[in-house]
Design a protein around this nucleic acid. Structure first.
Lengths: 161, 161
DNA sequence: CAAATGATTCGTTCAACGTCAACGACTTGC
DNA sequence: GCAAGTCGTTGACGTTGAACGAATCATTTG
């Protein structure tokens, strides 16, 4: 029963390891980002806005899975610094379309540079190629956002063929 | 100058993506672990104790980079549930050696099983092989712990030879 | 014996986050 | 055009996690 040979490996999950790495990064990144006047969630929001392009505010809230009211404050911070722009949607003037500004993109680049030292410290056991692999895996995982908040992932990740 | 050809890619860092994935996992994992009476940090501690074997309490605190006083409460929870054992170190009776119990290992397995559904939801864009790659990368990153809290990583990740 | 160390407990402080309630701007359905 | 619903915004409130300091006890070390 417990031995399905090769197929059945111990179900070790990445969640705990991810939590572990995240803790180590977070402790350091707060300090690294402080000189820029940013927090981790600011960088997260800027990253999403850079990678996805202009997004409606509630889409952004759904993607980063943050409460709408908190997104307001988050965007207030970013907009006060001129890092993002809020415009009204042309199709529905109730909505806001959020867009990263050139200044925001520059700031994000600075933040990523600052985070480089953090990653060098935390991910020191990984060589350059492994870090690129990690980045692309995370990129792929985060880029597949459910269209609705409750939608389960129906895409078959190509194991069939 | 700004173009070093192939070598110089935009310095996109994994930190923000890691933050992103972590948020999505955390929101769901708390709910998934609640029936077991566990929190994320409990699973983290159990994972470290399983992978490293019996560890001194301050080593554990250093590894998960958590304040010593908070580790006390964390271990109190785990010990109250019979998931870990605190014994006095034979060489220095001030120290505690923490060890995961059989019950703790079983509980950790249950927790990992419960987290499987969470990962299926969050990491749905990754196929099985990619998830294994992610796991091994995180494993490798977290297994290389600095011996002291301030020690920088001096190991060359095998690019040299 | 005196000093230092590890674990523990307690209390304080702070940031992040969720929730609820209310409001103005706007859209939609009737 | 009016009523109802939606989106963004603001504010207040409570919860949680976690860092920090101080005090205590047991133990080791000088």
């Amino acid at each position: 029963m417990p031995s399905l040979r090769v197929v059945n490996q111990p179900p070790q999950r990445s969640a705990a390891l991810l939590d572990h790495v995240w803790r180590r990064i977070r402790l350091r990144s707060e300090g690294a980002l402080a000189p820029l006047g940013l927090r981790s969630r600011h960088v997260l929001a800027l990253t999403v806005l850079r990678d996805r392009g202009p997004s409606e505010q509630q889409d952004l809230a759904r993607i980063i899975e943050m409460d709408g009211t908190n997104v307001v404050g988050l965007l207030n911070d970013l907009e006060a610094g001129g890092l993002v722009e809020r415009r009204r949607s042309p199709t529905d003037r109730r909505r806001h379309v959020v867009q990263i500004t050139r200044k925001g993109a520059n700031m994000l680049a600075k933040a990523e540079f600052a985070l480089g030292a953090v990653e060098d410290e935390v991910l020191c056991a990984l060589d350059r190629k492994q870090r690129e692999t990690l980045y692309s895996l995370l990129q792929q995982a985060t880029s597949a956002h459910p269209r609705t908040a409750t939608e389960t992932c129906t895409e078959e990740p190509s194991p069939g063929s």
